[in-house]
C-alpha cells in the first residue's frame, strides 16, 4: 500500500463523515458495545477452562499422584502419573537436545551470515513448517523412526517433539538476534574479531535473554503436545527402564484417561491436565516478566 492509497482512503473517510450528522452517536455506542461483548466472549472460555481444570484437578492432586504408577480401570482414586511426568520430562529433554542446537545455529546463519534471497526462502519454509499440523510430525517420525527401529520409544517421541519445536526455535532466535543493533556487530568486527568470535562472544550473549525466553516457551509448548506422541511414544502403564520402549507422557495420559468411562482414571486425567496448564501458564507469565528487562 502506498501513501496515495492511504490518502485516497482518508478522502473517502472525509466524505463519509460529511454524510453523517453529528450528535451523540448511538452508532458508536452500539459498536463499542459489540466489540466489548466479543472481547468478553473471547475471554470466557479461558476463565471457564482454568476454573474447571483447577477445581477438578486440584482435588485429586496428592502425594500419590506424583509418585505412583497409573491406576487400573476400576481402582477409585489410587495411583498417579509419576511415570508419565518422567516420560514428558525425558521426551521434552530429548526434543530440546535435538532442536535447540539445530535451530539456534540455523538462525545464526539466517541472521548473521546470509544475504539476498536465500534467507528469505528459508524463513518462509520455517514459517510454513511451523504451520504443519503436529500430528503429521508424529506420522513423519513414525515412518522415519518407529518403522526402522521396530518399536515405539521415548527417543521417537522426543524427535517428534523436536521437529515440532524446531521452527519455533529458529524463528525466536532469528528475531532475537536481529534485535541486536548492527553497531554492536561493527564494534566487534572493527576490532579485528573474526566472524566466529563476533557471533559467539558478542551477538549471541547480547541476544541471550530473548533467546532463552523463546526457548522456554517452545519447550513449554512441546510439553503440552499430545498428537506427535500418540504413535511415536505411545503410552505405558509402567516405569520407564529404557529409552527404546513405549513411554508414557502426561498429555497422552490425559487423552487416554479422559476418554474412558472409569471415574478414577478420569479424575487423574484432570489432575494431569492441571499440571500441563500449570507448566504452560507459569512459563508464559515468567517469559512475559523476563522480557521486560531486555538489553535492547
Amino acid at each position: 500500500m502506498t501513501a496515495t492509497d492511504y490518502r485516497s482512503r482518508a478522502d473517502r473517510a472525509r466524505r463519509a463523515i460529511a454524510e453523517q450528522t453529528s450528535g451523540p452517536s448511538y452508532f458508536d455506542l452500539f459498536w463499542t458495545g459489540v466489540a466489548g461483548f466479543f472481547t468478553l466472549l473471547a475471554l470466557i472460555p479461558l476463565v471457564l477452562v482454568l476454573v474447571y481444570v483447577v477445581i477438578r484437578g486440584f482435588s485429586r492432586l496428592n502425594w500419590a499422584a506424583f509418585t505412583q504408577l497409573p491406576p487400573p480401570p476400576l481402582a477409585p482414586d489410587q495411583g498417579g502419573f509419576a511415570n508419565a511426568l518422567i516420560g514428558t520430562l525425558i521426551m521434552v529433554g530429548i526434543g530440546a537436545l535435538v532442536s535447540v542446537p539445530f535451530g539456534v545455529l540455523a538462525a545464526i546463519y539466517l541472521s548473521e551470515f546470509s544475504q539476498g534471497q536465500v534467507p528469505r526462502w528459508i524463513r518462509f519454509a520455517t514459517n510454513v513448517l511451523s504451520g504443519v499440523p503436529s500430528i503429521l510430525m508424529g506420522v513423519f517420525i513414525y515412518g522415519l523412526f518407529v518403522i526402522t527401529t521396530g518399536t515405539y520409544s521415548a527417543v521417537a517421541g522426543g524427535f517428534a517433539l523436536g521437529v515440532l519445536m524446531l521452527p519455533i526455535i529458529v524463528r525466536t532466535t532469528d528475531e532475537s538476534l536481529q534485535i541486536v543493533p548492527k553497531q554492536v556487530r561493527w564494534a566487534a568486527i572493527g576490532m579485528g574479531a573474526s566472524k566466529f568470535q563476533t557471533v559467539l562472544r558478542v551477538v549471541l550473549p547480547a541476544a541471550l535473554p530473548a533467546i532463552a525466553t523463546g526457548l522456554t516457551l517452545a519447550v513449554a509448548r512441546a510439553a503440552g503436545e499430545t498428537a506427535p506422541l500418540l504413535f511415536t511414544a505411545l503410552f505405558s502403564q509402567y516405569w520407564l527402564d529404557s529409552l527404546f520402549q513405549p513411554t508414557a507422557s502426561l498429555s497422552v495420559l490425559v487423552y487416554n484417561f479422559a476418554t474412558v468411562p472409569y471415574e478414577g482414571q478420569q479424575r487423574l486425567a484432570w489432575a494431569a491436565a492441571l499440571i500441563l496448564v500449570g507448566i504452560v501458564l507459569l512459563t508464559s507469565i515468567l517469559a512475559r516478566w523476563a522480557t521486560r528487562k531486555q538489553i535492547y
Binding site: 554492536v184 561493527w186 576490532m191 579485528g192 562472544r201
Partner: peptide, 30 residues
C-alpha cells in the same frame, strides 16, 4: 588482520552489553 591494525570508533557509542572491564578486555581476548 587489517582491523587489528586499524581500529575504529563509530558515530553512535556502541559498547558491548558487557561490563566495562569486559568491553576493554574483549580485543585482547579475541
Amino acid at each position: 588482520q587489517v582491523r587489528r591494525r586499524i581500529g575504529m570508533v563509530f558515530q553512535q557509542p556502541n559498547p558491548f552489553p558487557k561490563s566495562i572491564y569486559d568491553n576493554i578486555a574483549f580485543g585482547a581476548r579475541a
